[in-house]
Design a protein around this nucleic acid. Structure first.
Lengths: 207, 207, 207, 207
DNA sequence: GATGAATGAGACTTCATTCAT
DNA sequence: TATGAATGAAGTCTCATTCAT
């Protein structure tokens, strides 16, 4: 398909290097669309149009719709992973770090409900592709899990199954996301949502 | 293509014909399939085969795939509504009633993530159909909402936005459902899942 | 696919029964096209147009291009089989019966070079489909084989591997067919072709 | 397309220059593939991969798939022509020379059924290309034809249309080839096949 | 001499939907 | 009440071919 970018020259890139390479462009458009409409409802044609290229070009870079989907979702999850990593590695108390995570997740459409995405694409993704996506998801859970375990050991929170607690947290963020984007009046804004959710969650972990 | 001619005999129907009228049969099969695979991935043909009728028969009862979908989902939500109503109207303390709700939701595939289902069928459902489904969902939330409000007034739980609390509860149940059905090792069984989830949730509502 | 035509009413068929059922129509057109152009170069669209139906109709009757191809070729081979059976079961000497077979094969495009047809469709036909076609071919060879064996036992022809002799005969007929249809001036007409071919062949079997 | 190879550096070529020039490499791979799979089923990509070059490189040497096909087939036929010429120009009796031809044809995949190859590529080859291929085929037939005519004049074989006899011979060899490569049990090996076929054929030409 | 990127055209296939019976 | 036959529209994917570098 394409080999690695070797030896990008330093300094301001020339015009031709300013625009993203086509494959990244496609990936970005695809991610956007898949997140909004789900696997089935996005056609390759649609992705192509969003990038001003032809269907055939999309297939030049991604051999299959499933492949494109996997790549796009992995990219998104990678971004979430990085983001979450950033927020969690500061020095402030866990409560505040979780608040930061919550806020950032609720600002972007960051909390993916992988299960619901996978339901739709099952039987189309290869076992390997599913595996990859599940692993990417796991990594995010692990991030939280580890911090929660530290907090348990510190006595900051009560003794719970940290994995469960991680899932619960992301589940609540998902809910917050949906509420915010569906425009029901549950929360005034994402800041408030983060606060309310973390409040419930944190209290739930006390004693 | 063509399935076998099953010579429907005249006169008093045999036992095998005693079962539900065709439309209910279709509805049941459709619900089952839609829940498992989502709107897009279920074909009318599939539903028809599951009922041993032809596509045309499905269309005789339901004018449209979207119509069938809506009907099926409404039926499911109605059942959830009834179920939840049952559990909530007893006399025991709210904590215990919520536990009962949690357990029953986690036993059946009862907790629907309507949002994720709607994402998939957007642009296919008419505004009316979406409206109906959202209303059906709302009814379930209201059920919980009302009880939570009572508990707030009683001083049983702290003062929170009851609607938010209702959403949070169902969100956690959804997560439990997915964990149980995806076979990760978060919970031993649905009973344990219910206990853990309610524990977190209830603590989160205290003070 | 379709059940047998039962209870065809006697007498002149009504208009609606006059035209062939659609599936037979498709089969006929497909056979025609596949024989002339080969598997790959015939598109379903083409077949459909030849029958004045839509592609979807073709797929209503034949689930796959390979399926249609198999069905069409089997039908052709079946016809050849019947034809050959007819010619071989008369009472006249084998030489004359073979002449009749030769003539009839050379009149219609009757001698299929299955091998060359299979080469083209390999990797598209399922193992079962290939199996079926090979069996159908075998049946035709067997027909000749049996007669040749009788003749050997009678002392009408010399002792050869009858199977080989059968293959040789059909091979020569194939050649005749191609010469006649490619319009080179090898033969004046199919009658002469039959005569020349049988002459060589029969002499080859003598002593 | 390509100018002559001029200025090949003198002296012992380096390893990398030992292998065939790219165009011959492509031609060889193409011939191989086309013979096995037929025109339609071979993609340029496939040919390219078989040579470890890119599609564009193939197009650098051959302007068109049809062009490549023609060139590849002509090369094959040329080889057959040379081979056959070799076998036929010796001094031994015609019968033995034909046996040699038969053996060599049955050892390699040497007997091409041009007609079946042309059927597949019709409408893609230009008239000129078809013409060229037919001429190449003709040359091979002529080779045999001439010898057969001499033999007729000598009284070695009976008076037949020599062209017909040539076609018949190659037709039988084709059959032998297919039998051998399809693995049916008609012949023990190519030697036996050659013997049986020539036996039938030669007897067919006697008196 | 060779190639990476891109594309237009077309192929196979699926599916919701209609309609006459 | 039920269905067999038919279809239009759309979707995924393949491939020969071009072109700038």
């Amino acid at each position: 398909m394409k080999h690695e970018n070797i030896g990008r020259s330093l300094g301001r890139p020339r015009i031709s290097e300013l625009k993203q390479p086509t494959d990244e462009l496609i990936l970005a458009a695809a991610a956007q669309l898949f997140l909004h409409k789900g696997f089935q409802k996005v056609s390759i044609e649609e992705v192509a149009q969003a990038c001003n290229v032809t269907k055939a070009t999309v297939y030049y870079y991604f051999s299959t719709k499933a492949e494109l989907y996997t790549a796009a979702m992995l990219a998104v999850m990678e971004r979430i992973y990085e983001l979450t990593t950033q927020m969690l590695k500061t020095d402030i108390p866990l409560h505040d770090r979780l608040l930061a995570v919550a806020e950032s997740h609720l600002e972007a459409t960051a909390a993916i409900d992988l299960n619901s995405y996978l339901r739709e694409s099952q039987e189309v993704l290869s076992v390997q592709q599913m595996q990859k996506m599940k692993e990417a998801e796991e990594r995010i859970f692990h991030l939280l899990e580890r911090e929660l375990e530290k907090a348990i050991n510190n006595g900051d929170i009560r003794k719970v199954n940290a994995k469960f607690a991680a899932h619960a947290f992301l589940s609540l963020l998902r809910m917050g996301n949906q509420s915010l984007s569906s425009g029901n009046d549950l929360f005034k804004d994402s800041k408030e949502a983060a606060k309310e959710i973390l409040d419930l969650y944190w209290k739930g972990l006390q004693i």
